[in-house]
Every structure is written in structure tokens, then in C-alpha cells.
Amino acid sequence: MRHATFLRFFLPTAIAMLLFIAMPIVSVVVQSVYAPHDRVVIEVENCTPFGCTKSTAIDQAATQKLRDENPLGRFVGGTIYVDRSHLAFAEVAEAWRQSATAGDFAARLMNLPFYKALAFTLTYLVFVTPLSILLGLLVALAVNAIPRILRGPTIFFSLLPMIVTPLIGALILFWMVDSRGIIGAAVQWLANDPDLSLKASTPLTWVMLIVYGTWSTAPFAFVVYYAGLQTVPQDTIESAMLDGASRWHRLRYVVLPHLMPLTTFMFLIKIMDNFRVFEPIVSFNAGAHAQSLSYFIYSDLGGETRLLSSAAATSVLTVAGVLVLLSPVLVRTWRQFGKA
């Protein structure tokens, strides 16, 4: 296809992505180095027959003039990045000096909102990704072993946790783990502690979110592995059987290696998706115990005062995180491309 024709076909989608994906990224970078103007404060003297009082007032006209002259705010460079809500270098250094043990240092780090959010996001990523892939593999192997006629309905029901809106799937589970809900009550009964609340404890909130994440993403792994199992070469399986390979050996040395490329692919997709974990935290109303990077940005944007600069700085750091996570793929592609 010639360049001009290609351009004509590709232009609409290119414009859409340029305006609404590339430009916002530029926009957050710009926003993150500007802070809102301070209000211009003037001192007013109110004189009454009983004497004069001084009070401060906001000079609306001057503030407005300042805003109109420089709508982005005042340039502050990298200071937002290093303030207490973000990278907090000063606080980290302070914590490092004061803490005797690594555990102590980690505990102090957890008081800084950005590191807290980063810690939860990475914990979620590290647990949910392998657990959901493993669960998906087990379900796929099991479904592949049942009679063909039962497979259709099984696949239908297995897809549901993934297809349903994340916010809603999480809400449904949240209502069940409520201390007055069925799972919450069951846990209280098992632990023999009528006051136990899954929502009130930070570790249990994290566990709940991870369980939800595994529940909702395992179906994707299941479907991909199930499709992969249909393409396992049957003659290899049969010759392995002739050679006396046990069921476990066939699984270990024939089936799993065949599924390996799928596993790599799924790790890539799941890492991207889990890094942006967000909706379950809203549903579980868990902001006090677990914040992800996305939720951190959301709460900055959504509050009474919209902290655009702070949200922008976190966004830039998040985008940097995405690039770091993707870098193995990008580097590998770069190498392959260099060879080609």
C-alpha cells in the first residue's frame, strides 16, 4: 500500500489517538510542573465610630488578572514531584536516617501516600497475575476433561465474572462480605468472632481485593488456555503415551510447553491490566486501607478541591511505571526489529 493511501485510511484513527491519548499525556506533563496561583491577599482597614479593625480580604480583581495572564498557574518545576504526597525524597531520607531496621523503614515509608499506593499496586500485581493464570489453567484442564456436551454451559458460566462490569462485580462481592452479608457472616462464624469485620482491617482488605482480582480475571486465562489446549498436537501426545509417559509427564513435558507462549502473552496483558487496578477499590470503599496509583489520582481529582497538579504528577509517575513494566517487551521487539 502506498504512503498516501495508507495515510488516508489511517488518518481518522491517528487523529483520534493523537488528540485524546498523546495530547493528554503532554497535558499532564505540563500540568505537573505548574501549581495554581495563590490568591492575592490585601489588607483592608474597616473604620467605624468605635475604632479601626484590620482584616485581610482576597483581591478578586488582582487574582483574576493573574489567572488570566497565566492560566496554567505559576511554574514550579519539579517541586510537586518531590513533595510529601509524591516521591518525598526529604521524608524518605529522614526515615532512612531515623529507622534502625528495614522493617521500621518500610513502616515509615507506608505513611507516605505515594509509596503506600505503589506498594498496594505492586502487591496486587504480584499476587493476582500468577494466581489468576494458575486458576485459569486448572479450570481449562478440568473443562477439557469433561464430556463435550457439558463444555458449552461451563464456558458460559465461567465467562461471567470477567464480562460483568468491574465496578459491579466488585460491588456484588462487597455486599456478600459485609458483616451482615452471607460471606461476612460465614467468616465471623468460622473465626468465632462476632465483631470481625473484613472491611475494618487493612490486611484483610488487601486479601479481599486480591481474591476479587483473581476471581474476575481467571476466566480470561481459562478461555485462552482452553483454546490453546484444543491445538495440542495429538500425535505427540500419543507417541508420548506409547513411550509410557504417565499422565503427569504428558502434562509436564508436552502440554505445558505447548501452552508456554500463551502464558507469556497473558502475563503481558495481565500485568498491564492489574497495574491500573481501580474500580474494586471504589466498590469496596477501601480507600482508607488500600490505595492504588489509579485510585490515588482519582481521589485527587474528585475531592472538593480538585488537585489537578498533584494528580498530574502522579499520572506522570504512573505512566513512567507503565513504561518500565513494558520495557522488556519493547526492548525485545526492538532487538527483533534490528535483526529483521
Partner: peptide, 14 residues
């Protein structure tokens, strides 16, 4: 790479 961007980071740009 665009697919991997969390939508909320874009929203804070909009």
C-alpha cells in the same frame, strides 16, 4: 503502549 496507559492518567489530562 497507549493500550497500557491507565485511563485515569489520561482523564487527569483532559
Amino acid at each position: 503502549v497507549f493500550r497500557a496507559m491507565p485511563p485515569i492518567t489520561l482523564v487527569s489530562g483532559y
